[in-house]
């Protein structure tokens, strides 16, 4: 049984380790700089900030 706990413990640690590695990657790549640009990265010229994109059928303003 103790072997299982060790396996479980290692698995849990490895889950944490992947998170730490990914965080290190994000820091290195500058993903955590300029939050304003990050927040607006899902908008573009076609669907800009300020334009709602979902309406009930028949309810979209023309």
């Amino acid at each position: 049984m103790s072997t299982t706990y060790v396996v479980l413990g290692i698995s849990a640690l490895m889950f944490g380790a992947t998170a730490v590695l990914a965080l290190a990657w994000a820091l290195r790549k500058g993903q955590l700089e300029n939050f304003q640009r990050g927040a607006t990265s899902i908008f573009d010229a076609d669907e800009p900030v300020g334009r709602p994109t979902d309406f009930f059928p028949g309810g979209r303003p023309r």
């Binding site: 304003q36 800009p48 900030v49």
Partner: peptide, 19 residues
Amino acid sequence: YYLLPKVLGRPIHSYYLSI
């Protein structure tokens, strides 16, 4: 986190907090 800003046409309040 994708659809809320997208539907409203408004970026998330604090992107820092979301990270």
